[in-house]
Simulated assay, not measured.
Amino acid sequence: MQTQVGTHEITLAKARQQASTIFLAKVFNWMAAGLAVTGVIAYFVAQSGLVASLIASPIFFILVLAELGMVFYLSARIEKIQPGTATGLFVTYSALNGVTLSTIFLAYTHASIAATFLVTAGMFAAMAVFGLVTKRDLSGMGSFMFMGLIGLILASIVNIFLKSTAVYWAISAIGVLVFVGLTAYDVQKIKQIGEQGIMEQGEAAIRKGAIIGALALYLDFINLFLMLLRFFGGSRD
C-alpha cells in the first residue's frame, strides 16, 4: 500500500511538473511575441522620421494613457473577457508600446540600445532560472518589490519637479533591483499556477492565464531594459 501511494505521489508530481513546463512555455512564447512586436514597430517608427513630431504632439500623451488603461483593464478583467479579447489587447498594447518606445532612438545610439538589450536578456534569463529552481518562497520578496515599485513611481513624479540628477540615478539603480526581483517572483508565481492545475481548466483559461503571465514578464523585461539603458545607453549627442 505504501509503495502504491508513493508511486502515485511521484506520478502526480511529475504530471504537475510537466503541466507547469507546458504552461511556462506558452507564457514565454507570448512574452517573446510581445517583445518582437514592440521591437519591430519601435524600429520602423524611428526609421520613418516621425518620432520628433510624435513627441511634440498630444498624440504621444494619449498613447501613454491608452497603454496604462490597457494594462489596468487586462489585469482587472482577465477572468471575464474572452481569450481572443485578451490576446488582442496584449498585442495592441505591445504595438502601442513600440510606438512610444521609438523615442529611445532619438536619445541613444543603435549600438548601445542593442547592447543594453542583450544585457537585459542575460539578467532576465538568470533571474527567471532562479525563480524556477529556487525552493525559497519568493512571495515576501514580491510584496517588498511591489512596494519598491510604488516608491519608484512616486519618486519619479516628484523628480519631474525637482529635476535632481542624484535622485534620477538613485531611481535608476533601485529600479534595476526592483525589476530583477520582480522577474524572479513573477516566474515562480507563473510556475506555481501551472502546477496548480490551470492546464486542466480548458483552453480558454490556459490562453488567458498565459496572456496575463506574459504581460507581467513583458513589463518586467521592458522596465528593466529602460532602467539599464540609463546606465549603458550611449547618447547620440
Rank of each mutant, 00 (worst) to 15 (best):
A66F: 13
A25W: 08
V178N: 14
I222T: 11
S57L: 06
L63W: 06
L96Q: 01
A76C: 01
K80V: 05
Y108W: 13
I113V: 11
N29T: 12
L226R: 14
V51S: 09
A86N: 06
I198H: 07
L226N: 11
Y168K: 14
G84V: 07
A121T: 02
A121R: 12
L162K: 13
I171C: 11
S164E: 11
V119G: 11
K14W: 02
F179G: 05
A19I: 06
G122H: 05
L106D: 00
F225G: 09
I41Y: 06
L229D: 03
F179L: 00
G142R: 05
Q18V: 14
G197K: 00
M199G: 07
L162R: 07
S57E: 05
Y168D: 15
G181N: 05
S94A: 15
I206N: 00
T3F: 15
A76M: 01
A86T: 08
T3Y: 12
K135L: 10
V178G: 05
M70P: 02
Y168P: 03
V158C: 00
Q192I: 06
F130W: 10
G151S: 12
F117I: 04
T109N: 05
G148E: 06
G131T: 03
G209P: 01
T165A: 13
S53D: 13
P58I: 02
